[in-house]
Amino acid sequence: MTAPTSIKVRSLSKWFGSWRALQGVSVDIEGGACTVLCGPSGSGKSTFLRCLNGLEEWQTGEIEIGGIAVGDQPRALTRLRRDVGMVFQSFNLFPHLSVLDNVTLAPRRLLHRRRKDAEEQAMRLLQRVGVARQADKLPAGLSGGQKQRVAIARALAMEPKVLLFDEPTSALDPESVKEVLDVMIELAKGGTTMVVVTHEMGFARRVASRVLFMDKGRIVETAEPEAFFTCPCSERAKSFLADIGPP
């Protein structure tokens, strides 16, 4: 097995017009582990995550994934994205394709897999996330939790080295949240590098190897989950945890 892929970010700054969303963020994200990014809304955590695979442009700073720079060269960026899967808050499944075709689209087009091989792999993934029975349905026929699990299978189909999760459970009802979190807990055991933006503090405490707390475009605190939840160092993290209640 190859070494897990780590992520290096150096003085990353991004402005939306005159508003500075990221204020020179520098951080090393450990490979093969699950890192949770939390913080109040508007703190820049989603923006930060979206910079990691170049969905968001930034003005100054550098990002390296597995030693390769995330740049603005379209070809290189497109190539890099194959290895960096992403799961969105609003699922973003392709509505005109069946669940199976949603999962096989990228492997067939980008890795030139045969249809049969791609579908076998897709069925294995759908089995793993527990939606194999919905394979022939259109996304519109699925519940929120099922959609998000299909979206995870779709990202996994490219066998990415890094998985980014942008608030994957925020649009779900409590029961579906558990379905999706269970899948993510399984994944975290598998040794893929995961970066998760979430408000699920229970997940963070149980699964994360490290918690990054962001506020006003800065990473204010970096800690082991136990330490972060029992005695946060910064005042801001203290009041944030007090507001959302104990995990």
Binding site: N53, L55, T78, R79, L80, R81, R82, D83, V84, G85, M86, F88, S90, F91, N92, L93, F94, P95, L105, A106, R109, L110, A151, R154, A155, M158, L164
Partner: peptide, 14 residues
């Protein structure tokens, strides 16, 4: 929806 474009881009499609 622009989310579908983003999802496709995130997979590495040109």
């Amino acid at each position: 929806d622009k989310g579908q474009r983003e999802a496709a881009a995130a997979l590495g499609l040109s």
